[in-house]
Amino acid sequence: MFEAKLQQGVIFKKIVDAIKDLVKSVNIDASTSGLSMQAMDSAHVALVSLKLNENGFKDYRCDRPITLGLSIENLSKILKCAGNDDTITLQTDEEEPSSLKFFFENQQASKISEFSLNLMSLDSESLGIPDTDYSSVIQMSSAEFSRICKELSSISETVEIETSKESVKFSVQGDIGAGSITVKNNQSDKDVDRVDLQIDQPVKLTFALRYLNMFNKAVSLSSTVSLNMSEENPLMVEYKIDDLGSLRFYLAPKISD
């Protein structure tokens, strides 16, 4: 028996919205400790990793580990039928399920919707990501990071991110010209202005803005985002989801030919 009930179903809707442009189908692994998912985009440039802890669910039960292979597009179609204030319950009682049941219930418990989503058998292409001590970690407003990426993507396809002890600089160079946005360390009380820089070693890395813009679809999951970088390593962009877990995106850098 597997059953997971989310009090704030809207979080699940937002997670699926955030990844649906990046990945088409995923294996969700359910275990006693919670749900996890890892998937690469079709070009194998980026990777998304989701971890939801059992403690963050209103009810959670998973008697034995199961893998749920599903189409994100089809999942998204079903989740459109859930209201933003609804609870969402995922359920299956089969050992090797061919479908996953969904229950959506509104706050007054006056409306209950029930759906079943056909599951797929997908090759598992899980990558081992070691725990990494990143040499530059930036925590800032997710909305502000999203804005910077969006603005710069009209000038260039790539952005160079350069950190120093005091600031992080986002630079672009395109056909029409060049520019940069520098964000300084700022210990403001307001989330929107706050910028935390933990720089052990400065880094200078270049990334495709198209992917960063896709990651930023997760902006509504968390008011802050953390950018984790080490020289010659993928960027890890993390959105923490309150008590529930985290959504991480990894992006391979671009290198000079």
């Binding site: 690469m40 194998h44 993928p234 391979a252 671009k254 290198i255 000079s256 030919d257």
Partner: peptide
């Protein structure tokens, strides 16, 4: 010119 690397260049398949 810059080349886009693949994520598998960094993390191994499990």
């Amino acid at each position: 010119l810059r080349s886009q690397l693949h994520i598998e260049n960094y993390y191994r398949l499990e």
